[in-house]
Amino acid sequence: MTTAQPPARQTRQRRKITVAATDDLPPGARVEVQTGRAVIAVFNVDGEYYALFGRCPHQSAPLSRGRLQGTVICNAETCWETEWAFDGEILVCPGHGMEYHVKSGEAIGYDLKLRTYEVVVEEGQVILLL
């Protein structure tokens, strides 16, 4: 019997990208990170950092420039009444208005989720882990 190996993705050394000093990325601020061909949008929402794939899959508009606001929902939890929700957490694509939950990358109203990336703070620096 052999010992099971952990999946390769867990053994790979994760790449760290210094995004900004925490003072340079205050709540409400955002940056666009380009590494190779990948574009990643990093947001500070009320002191928490979130990083998402930076191009809208619809027509490639830059998501880093999207506004953060709320949206309307209507589901069993709202008893099928329309309600305003997720205020400040919905990233609106500046191209044609597709909406994404900034915390999860999930597109509102589509079976689609943007890739998200882990962001940590080390020694006063905001670090993107790839």
Binding site: D24, R30, V31, Q34, T35, R67, H96
Partner: peptide, 13 residues
């Protein structure tokens, strides 16, 4: 790696 500070766009890009 390029890191660029950006602002939200109030008009469609």
């Amino acid at each position: 790696v390029t890191v660029q500070r950006v602002e939200p766009s109030f008009n469609p890009v």
